[in-house]
């Protein structure tokens, strides 16, 4: 990989000014960015490490929601929200493998918006709010297609707030070689209705399966989804699974998630 200048700021303000430099890029846990740089698909001139910013690491729960610092690792989320939001803890605990979870961060995952990543489903399914150094962005406005987000150049995810649903569950069908989701479905029953977020399946990246939401709003049961599946025409088709297979999995995993919600 090409060499770069390295900055390790202590505050969000310092990080924001470092990010203003030409060719600057944020570094979270590096679990995606570092392999990308090795392949020279990314060659930032300045890397701004966010993991030394105390204010961006940690979890706090209050008033029916949990707020997670943008540089908090998956392992810490798995441990720290186990009681307040078990479905989110389980999602974090199943990302990749233990070593990936000890470095990878929620901010890095959401900024990257990999079409097979787990956090986008958790954030969209929960109706989370993504907070940056500039503004708050609702999850419904944040995800804009594969690897595309509402973030501006140089914008830093400082924290993410997840309202805690009445019931929630995430079902991940592992792609065993990559350890990402072949398909993943996050179901949340909230006071404002049911939300169903699907990752790994669509060519458009994470999305809400509104037909399932409508069915579940009138009857929150597996039976309400009988015979329903995703739309194969919109699905990713690759050597790991055809579009039809993924569309089928969307239906199966959503039913499993509803069943697991109890």
């Amino acid at each position: 990989m090409y060499n770069f200048e390295f900055a390790k700021p202590k505050t969000v303000e310092e990080a924001a000014s470092a990010m203003a430099a030409e060719g600057a890029q944020a570094l979270g846990g590096g679990q995606t960015l570092l392999p990308t740089m090795k392949q020279r698909l990314a060659s930032p001139e300045v890397l701004v490490s966010l993991t030394g910013i105390d204010g961006m690491v940690g979890v706090s729960a209050s008033g029916g929601s949990v707020t997670i610092g943008g540089a908090t690792t998956h392992a810490q989320v798995a441990a720290d929200v186990a009681e307040s939001y078990p479905a989110l803890a389980a999602l974090a605990a199943n990302i990749g493998d233990p070593a990936v979870r000890n470095r990878g961060t929620v901010g890095g995952s959401l900024a990257n918006n990999d079409p097979a990543a787990c956090y986008p489903a958790g954030a969209l399914g929960s109706g989370a709010t993504i907070t940056t150094n500039k503004r708050d962005i609702a999850a419904d406005d944040y995800f804009q297609g594969m690897f595309e987000t509402a973030l501006d150049e140089g914008e830093i995810i400082t924290s993410v707030s997840f309202p805690i649903p009445q019931k929630a569950n995430y079902q991940k069908f592992d792609q065993p070689a990559s350890r990402f989701a072949l398909v993943g479905v996050f179901v949340a029953k909230t006071p404002d209705g049911v939300r169903v977020a699907v990752t790994g399946a669509s060519n458009e990246g994470v999305y809400r399966w509104t037909a399932a939401e409508t069915a579940l709003n009138s009857d929150f049961s597996q039976a309400a989804l009988e015979g329903m599946s995703g739309d194969a025409d919109d699905m990713i088709s690759d050597l790991h699974g055809s579009g039809a297979y993924r569309a089928h999995l969307v239906g199966v995993l959503t039913r499993r998630a509803v069943a697991a919600c109890g």
């Binding site: 590096g30 070593a99 990936v100 470095r103």
Partner: peptide, 27 residues
């Protein structure tokens, strides 16, 4: 692998298992 797949490079940093091929030394 040098691509964070195989785990041959696992070491502990501040007590946590990490893949040493996927962390900068300056970190």
């Amino acid at each position: 692998c040098d691509t964070s797949q195989c785990g041959a490079c696992v070491v502990h940093v501040n007590g946590k298992a990490v893949k040493a091929c996927t962390m900068f030394a300056v970190e």
